[in-house]
């Protein structure tokens, strides 16, 4: 994945502006996301982290009043182009939400849903395999292998979130977007998910929004700092946390606001 010692660029956002009705939520965002790295997006609440994340799989389409301008290039293709098919896009870019949201169906059905609608399994055995590998990758298999046909809503919060991760990776996405995936979880469940993220970055590019700077420092290699809809600073996590260029970043990191 390395080319001349530099990581490949997986996603490249160019001059992205986002409006909710008349209100502008993001101002001229330019950010490159590197392949097989964990990129953390940090910043005070309401600064537009989620909005930016949702631009990357066009989930903002769902919100009537939301308008996205600018270019977001993934695999040399601008996803804001008219010709882009959102179904194909979201097959490649998976998402995990803040609050675990498994379907009120069985564990098996939760995982098999994506592969079913995208026609990824030709037989029951293939589907069983997909379910098993997805759950194994999400470090959930051992805990649930005996109750695959029980409802997913019966799991604990941390298990539900890992189920949602397993669901997201069931269609082998290239990128996984995570919007504060641990904010509803206890510290032990959080540690499990963080470990998992580290594992997943071998096969996927991960972008994680988090309000916990400690978490950003622990899991990410790259960090972007947002403030009031602007991307103030971005770079390697080491640099952002130890030696930021911008005083606002400095203030936020040291806990002076946010």
């Amino acid at each position: 994945m390395r080319k001349n010692g530099v990581n490949m660029i997986k996603i490249s956002a160019k001059n992205v502006d986002v409006f909710y009705g008349k209100k502008q939520a993001l101002f001229n965002i330019n950010l490159d996301i590197e392949e097989n790295q964990v990129t953390a997006l940090i910043g005070p609440s309401g600064c537009g982290k989620s909005t930016f994340l949702r631009c990357l799989n066009r989930m903002n389409d769902v919100i009537d009043i939301c308008k996205v301008q600018g270019e977001i290039v993934i695999n040399d293709f601008n996803i804001n182009d008219k010709g882009c098919d959102v179904v194909r896009l979201r097959e490649k870019i998976g998402m995990v939400f803040q609050k675990p949201n498994p379907f009120p169906k069985t564990l098996y059905e939760n995982i098999s849903y994506g592969p079913t609608i995208h026609g990824m399994a030709q037989s029951k055995q293939e589907m069983d395999e997909i379910v098993e590998t997805s759950l194994k990758k999400a470090a959930l298999w051992e805990e649930v292998k005996d109750r695959l046909h029980e409802p997913g809503t019966g799991l604990s919060g941390g298990q539900q979130q890992r189920l949602c991760i397993a669901r997201a990776i069931s269609v082998q996405p290239e990128v996984i977007l995570m919007d504060e995936p641990c904010s509803a979880l206890d510290p032990i469940a959080t540690a499990q998910i963080e470990e998992l993220i580290d594992e997943l970055k071998k096969e996927h590019t991960i972008i994680i929004v988090t309000h916990s700077m400690a978490q950003a420092a622990r899991v990410s290699q790259r960090t972007g700092f947002f403030h009031l809809g602007e991307l103030i600073e971005h770079g390697s996590t080491d640099k952002i946390f130890k030696n930021p260029d911008n005083t606002k970043t400095q203030d936020y990191i040291t806990g002076r606001f946010g």
């Binding site: 799989n57 989930m59 769902v62 959102v86 179904v87 194909r88 896009l89 979201r90 097959e91 998976g94 998402m95 939400f97 609050k99 949201n101 498994p102 379907f103 009120p104 849903y113 994506g114 609608i117 995208h118 949602c164 669901r167 997201a168 269609v171």
Partner: peptide, 27 residues
Amino acid sequence: VPPSIREAALAMGASRMQTTMHHTVPL
């Protein structure tokens, strides 16, 4: 039906029609 269920289905790449027919309407 909570919007989070719709979002989950849409984010999995289900079309609006599939989201409605597979999740929202049965619920």
